[in-house]
């Protein structure tokens, strides 16, 4: 029987209790919830084990069933690589390839499809990236402590080999990224892949030379200006294009297919998308590493 000196009353405690919750509103009334400890621990562990076992068995059954159904479904899909009886080769594919160059101006049929025929999906997709950046900024901005950043700096930026190799690799990578973005309508590539390459180049630069050198040109204000302007340009270009395709003549500045400035709006859209993706990739890196852009 223990006497607790804090309060005036005596109350009985079971030995070695570990689940006591004391709730006190005023000094006079105390509510003590006490359970015999060992029984409670045993019940808890038994309950947990039973629940985990049920979850595992149910999940296992669902998994086996789902995969069995999907494998059964694969047997009914068209034969891989066949071109006879292939129901997916219909008039849409013929239209995209036959008239693709005249209508869109892009020699790369996939770019012509995603930035011209099915441009609404790509608009939604750019906003998916934007949502991701917003959410990551909500979570990670101003979250890290300053001491951690200083320690990381000391640990990382003393590497001479990294600096030497980065000093000739980074310009080449950025140039490759710019080439892929600009040639999106002519050869394989486009805004998304080119933007990812440029983002990787920027990350390498920041790893080798430190945060101060990148924050000269990439801070939160520039980031917001670049992403907002690119998204607004994309949105308004596509709104104009959709509106004029229903009411009135299409505005479609063409150029010669095969040259860089061809494809009408596709060039501008590729450029915007490339900028957004590059800034987003680098922004993710900075948010995870440093806690702010």
């Amino acid at each position: 029987m223990k006497k607790n000196k804090l309060f005036d009353e005596e109350f009985e405690l079971v030995n070695d209790v570990d689940e006591v919750s004391v709730f006190q509103e005023k000094k006079e009334d105390i509510v003590v919830k006490v359970l015999p400890p060992k029984t409670r621990k045993r019940i808890r562990k038994g309950e947990e084990k039973a629940l985990t076992a049920i979850y595992d068995i149910a999940a296992g059954v669902c998994f086996v069933f789902l995969i069995g159904v999907l494998l059964y479904c694969v047997m009914f899909l068209p034969i891989f690589g066949a071109n006879k009886n292939n129901i997916t080769l219909n008039e849409i594919v013929t239209e995209y390839i036959q008239n693709g160059i005249e209508v869109t101006g892009a020699t790369n049929f996939v770019t012509g499809m995603i930035l011209d025929y099915r441009a609404f999906d790509t608009l939604g997709e750019s906003f998916v990236l934007f949502t991701a950046v917003t959410c990551v900024m909500i979570l990670l901005q101003n979250f890290h402590d300053n001491e951690e950043i200083e320690f990381e700096k000391i640990k990382m930026f003393n590497d001479k080999i990294l600096r030497y190799s980065a000093s000739f690799l980074v310009p080449v990578i950025l140039l490759l990224g710019a080439y892929v973005i600009l040639n999106g309508s002519i050869s394989p590539g486009g805004g998304f892949s080119g933007g990812a390459i440029m983002g990787a180049g920027l990350i390498l630069y920041s790893l080798a030379f430190g945060f101060k050198s990148t924050s000269k040109f990439f801070n939160i204000k520039n980031f917001k200006i670049i992403t907002s302007t690119s998204l607004l340009t994309y949105c308004l270009c596509k709104a104009l294009s959709f509106y004029t395709s229903v009411n009135g003549p299409m505005i479609h500045p063409f150029g010669i297919p095969g040259a860089i400035f061809s494809g009408g709006f596709i060039f501008i859209l590729n450029f915007c998308v490339g900028l957004i993706v590059a800034c987003t990739m680098f922004g993710f890196y900075l948010l995870f590493k440093k806690g702010e852009i």
Partner: peptide
């Protein structure tokens, strides 16, 4: 009036970009 659904979506998108900064 048939253009209005498109305008709803586009104005929504523009609003998204504006509220971000």
């Amino acid at each position: 009036v048939i253009n209005l659904p498109l305008f709803t979506i586009i104005i929504g998108f523009v609003g998204v970009v504006l509220t971000s900064f």
